[in-house]
């Protein structure tokens, strides 16, 4: 039986590690780009990113003041359904409580406010906050928890959705992705470089969900297993690099970490496309917990693992 206390302890540790340090793929990308970036301002921005992370890790403090909206991706193995103390409701309660505790203890910036009154309880708690997403994983004997802190930049200026005419084709998709990236990064509107997530097809919410998950849950350098989609990822990356928007939109070779694209079939009348620009402040960590109390740290979330047809 997995105790709620063990979940709370583990999740608290995850928030600390992902607020204090970047995932390895992001850190090594920033370091490599810093070493070869020739734009003076671009290089300065990349150095600032790296310095902030080094300072944060050394002092045990968050590396960005926008510590994000707290989001959990939960993979509940069918073998664990009856192995969680108090059941799934208790698990949700634990995740909510931990969110308030780490907000005051780490501390995190209380970002969750009422959309109209702007009331801020200073706890990162409210309807829909923290954001808990759950999926049942068939034939698995673990509870997988992925913590992601979603920054305001990607949510405020880094996201776009449209429905193109059904025959707009690849060129139409490229146009929308490039145009959105220009509008979001040009003149320093959002913090760049970004990991560009693209949702292609699906319904209204599936399309935007795919774009966001492609940006935040897949590692730098990853390619879609479908070779045609992988080719489109490469094409979009080439397009974005040609813009030379650079770090903070100040010019340079480092305009994006990568482009990740996810596809779902859509209604024949539509061609939905969504774009999500994750900034350099990537906070993601994953663990698997087992009924016997084992905790296994994972380099990546399995949330994106695709169905086998």
């Amino acid at each position: 039986m997995l105790s709620q206390q063990a979940v709370a302890r583990t999740v608290t540790a995850l928030w600390k590690s992902n607020q204090y340090d970047l995932p390895e793929d992001f850190k090594s990308f920033l370091q490599e780009q810093h070493d070869k970036e020739t734009s003076e301002f671009g290089k300065a921005h990349l150095k600032a990113n790296l310095d902030a992370v080094a300072t944060a890790s050394a002092r045990n403090m968050p590396f960005c003041a926008d510590t994000g909206l707290l989001t959990y991706y939960i993979g509940l193995g069918t073998g664990m359904i009856h192995e969680i103390e108090g059941g799934y409701r208790a698990l949700e309660r634990t995740l909510r409580e931990v969110s308030a505790e780490v907000t005051s203890d780490i501390p995190l910036r209380p970002n969750a406010v009422h959309p109209l009154t702007r009331h801020n309880p200073n706890t990162n708690q409210g309807p829909g906050c923290p954001d808990i997403k759950m999926r049942v994983v068939p034939d698995a004997d673990y509870l997988e928890i992925t913590n992601v802190a979603v920054g305001g930049g990607p949510e405020l200026v880094g996201s776009k959705f449209t429905v193109l005419p059904p025959t707009a084709g690849e060129k139409g998709v490229r146009k929308f992705v490039v145009e959105s990236t220009i509008n979001l990064v040009r003149l320093g509107a959002t913090c760049s470089p970004n990991l560009v997530g693209v949702g292609l097809g699906g319904t209204f919410e599936t399309c935007t969900r795919m774009a966001k998950e492609a940006a935040i849950l897949r590692p730098v350098g990853d390619r879609n297993p479908d070779s045609e989609l992988a080719r489109l990822e490469d094409q979009l990356m080439d397009d974005i690099l040609r813009l030379k928007l650079g770090p903070m939109g100040m010019g340079g070779a480092t305009s994006a970490f990568d482009v990740h694209l996810e596809m779902a079939y859509c209604h024949m009348a539509t061609l939905p496309v969504a774009v999500y620009l994750q900034c350099a402040a990537m906070r993601r960590t994953t663990v698997r917990m087992y009924a016997d109390g084992r905790v296994e740290s994972r380099p990546l979330s399995s949330w994106m693992e695709r169905e086998t047809p």
Partner: peptide, 8 residues
């Protein structure tokens, strides 16, 4: 505009 380490 900022080009710095926000902790610093």
């Amino acid at each position: 505009v900022c080009a710095g380490n926000y902790n610093e």
